[in-house]
């Protein structure tokens, strides 16, 4: 059984969000990079948990990005991936990334492809769904549970106001979110082992993007908080009714 886990690199959740070059580029100055939390905490760790139950499982990692993504992919190997592929393409267009991952998927023989629900920088939530169309493979999104039984997967996904469970034959693409797995930290043994695990670099094959970022804006600053005396909740109710008009 082969699982392909899609790993992306994102700015740390506390990174200062600022832009340069006339608001056309994200300012990477001083930014710490992490594995996208959905990829690390949920999809990768779930793959590791499945492997702990069935040691015949091989965990393959794929990332589409420049050489600067290698520390991220090494960390993912330290957590428990068996080998990694980096596609040397720095595009930020979702379709380009999905097409690169699809060609990696076509060249291998993967029973399960896991992605995060979304990246926390561009929040596209697109790659899994695009892979579904590119590979003509079943896709379950926003999954909170995933079990395997032979060649069948049992998946529970979030829906508005609840959860829906289903079964699907493999191969299958799943986008993962909270509930899937318990967060882990890499241990020393894993970090040492990761240094010698295979990390293959393949050249980009896709170039033409369908979208382009024109510019970024920051939201207008709040005009400042209006403090209300804790002993006067009638005043807060009045403000919510008459000024904010929300109740």
């Amino acid at each position: 059984m082969n699982i392909l886990v899609c790993i992306s690199k994102t700015p740390d959740t506390t990174a200062k969000i600022a832009f340069t070059e006339g608001n056309t580029k994200f300012d990477e100055n001083g930014v710490q990079w992490i594995i996208n939390p959905y990829d690390e905490w949920y999809s990768l760790v779930r793959a590791i948990e499945l492997k702990e139950k069935d040691p015949s499982i091989q965990i393959h990692l794929v990332t589409v990005g420049g050489a600067d993504t290698e520390p991220i992919i090494r960390k993912a190997l330290a957590l428990g991936g068996d080998e990694a592929i980096r596609v040397n393409n720095t595009a930020s267009d979702s379709l380009v990334i999905a097409q690169e991952i699809a060609s990696v998927a076509n060249a291998g023989n993967y029973d399960l492809i896991l992605t995060g629900k979304e990246t926390i920088d561009y929040n596209s939530a697109s790659i899994g769904s695009m892979l579904c169309a590119l590979l003509d493979t079943n896709f379950v999104s926003s999954a909170v549970k995933l079990e395997l039984n032979g060649t069948t997967a049992m998946v529970t996904r979030e829906i508005e106001g609840g959860e829906e469970s289903c079964t699907s034959p493999l191969p299958l693409i799943v986008s993962c979110q909270k509930g899937m797995a318990e967060q882990r930290i890499p241990n020393m043994r894993g970090i040492m082992a990761a240094r010698t695990k295979p990390l293959k670099v393949v050249e980009a094959t896709v170039q033409s993007a369908t979208t382009s970022i024109k510019n970024f804006d920051l939201p207008p600053a709040k005009s400042g908080v209006k403090l209300v005396d804790p002993a006067n909740m009638d005043e807060l109710v009045r403000l919510l009714k008459e000024e904010a008009k929300v109740i």
Binding site: I17, N215, F216, D217
Partner: peptide, 17 residues
Amino acid sequence: TKTVFSGKAFASIQIDT
């Protein structure tokens, strides 16, 4: 225009197709 960085900024994206 869409929200990016989990609502901390907006990006204006051109669709070329």
